[in-house]
Structure formats: structure tokens, C-alpha cells
Design a protein around this nucleic acid. Structure first.
Lengths: 112, 112
DNA sequence: TGTCATGTGTACTACACACTACACATTTCG
DNA sequence: CGAAATGTGTAGTGTGTAGTACACATGACA
């Protein structure tokens, strides 16, 4: 799914129950120009910066990590965690990549 | 440790046994201008792009993930793995962040 | 002693990123 | 009906990224 299509859909969902979700209003709340958000929604402009995507996720009440992923980005705290122990984390992620979700969830569960 | 300091040190290690590791020679092999590599080594220029760092890691026979981390970057395949399953991977990394190395290694071990 | 290689200084550049500014044509609704 | 709000088109902008180009001084070495 394209980033623009997705955020347009989510925004319009909200808009149906709350007229505070017009393109202009949302643009105002995430502090960008309406014309820019319009282009992003239609895929005529590349997805915004990480910071802007985070504001958008908050306003649209959607998962930030997913939204970042659609924009080919990764949250800053995840990058930091990898950079703090690069070899360990690289090994972990490469191992997790080929595991079914249940297995990975098992690991996480054993942590808490 | 600074990126520049580190690669200079590693390069000079090699240089002591192999005169094929002069700044100019290494620059040639990773396909950048010597003056640029010089600036990078002394911290007068920001670390190079991901692709250039990978070539450098290969030439210096040092761990690519570590070198990338020093440059505040993350390997592309790790980003891709996160983006493929953003919520799961985000949860995993945030869980692993606070675990001792042995625990994480245990998870990895249970995978193979 | 001359030439070759080494590291460095200065100046510059092409391109992409992440937007802004503003005018315009519709649509809504009090 | 008229005013306000809506989405969009065109043009332009400042900043950062990732380097290149080339001259220069120094040192090795044959």
C-alpha cells in the first residue's frame, strides 16, 4: 500500500465522523502547507520527514512504526538501539527475519 | 569512538604490514578522492554514504555493521527487515534493548 | 638529486530533500 | 445568495548530502 493512499484513507475515515479532519485542518495540526499534504496524499510528493510522519501518526491515531515503514523509514529509537550494540542487534534482526511471528513473540514474552 | 579516528587507525594497522594501504590507495579502491578520505579520517567531513562505508569495511576487513553504527547509520537489510513487519520488529528491538547480551544470544540460538 | 608517492588545503558542485507561498476553482451551508 | 471552507496547481526556496578537482608541501628512495 502506498503511503499517500493510506493516509488519505485514514484521514477520510475520521472525516466522516468529525469535520475536524479536512485536509486543511490536518495539515494545520501537523504544521505543513495544505498543498503539500495534498500532494503527499496523492503520491505527487515523497513522504514527509520522520518528524512530520510522527505528528501525522499522532493526529490520525495510527501506528507510527507502520506509517514510518510505508515511507521506507525506521523510528529513531530503533536505529539508536541497533547502533548501541550493532553486532548483537544485527544478528538478532537477521535471525528474526526468517522466524514466524509466534516464535518472535515468544522471545519478547520471555523478556517481561 | 569517532568514525574518522577509527578508520584511520585500522588503515594504519594494515599499512604497517602492507604498503597497499596508503590513504591514496585505499581511496582509490573505495572510489573516492584522496582529499575526501583524508577529511573523513580527520573528522573534517561527515562519514560517507552507506555504500561507500560498505566498500571501506570490505577493504579494511572490518565489521560493516559496526562501521555503519559509528556513522549513525543502519544496514539496508536490517531496515528492510523492520519495514517488512514493523510492529513485530519494533516490539522485538525495544524488548531486546534492555536485555543483557546473553539473553538475546539465547533467543538467536534457539532459532537455528 | 630528481622523481615519485604521500597526505592535505581550498574551492567548488550537482542533486535530492522537505518543504513554503499563493493563486485558483469548486463545494458547502447559514 | 454570499461567505467561508475545501482541495489542488504552479513555482520557487533553503539546507544538507556526498562528494570532485586540483594545487601544494613534504618525505622516501633509487
Amino acid at each position: 500500500m502506498e503511503f499517500g493512499d493510506y493516509i488519505r484513507r485514514v484521514r477520510q475515515m475520521h472525516q466522516q465522523q468529525d469535520r475536524g479532519y479536512s485536509l486543511r485542518q490536518v495539515a494545520g495540526r501537523i504544521r505543513v502547507e495544505p498543498s503539500y499534504l495534498s500532494k503527499v496524499e496523492r503520491g505527487l510528493a515523497a513522504p514527509p520527514s520522520r518528524a512530520t510522519i510522527l505528528r501525522l501518526a499522532a493526529v490520525l491515531q495510527t501506528d507510527a512504526d507502520c506509517l514510518l515503514a510505508m515511507a521506507d523509514r525506521v523510528a529513531e529509537d530503533l536505529c539508536a538501539a541497533i547502533q548501541a550494540r550493532p553486532q548483537l542487534m544485527a544478528k538478532l534482526i537477521r535471525a528474526a527475519k526468517d522466524q514466524p511471528e509466534a516464535t518472535v513473540l515468544g522471545w519478547i514474552d520471555s523478556a517481561s
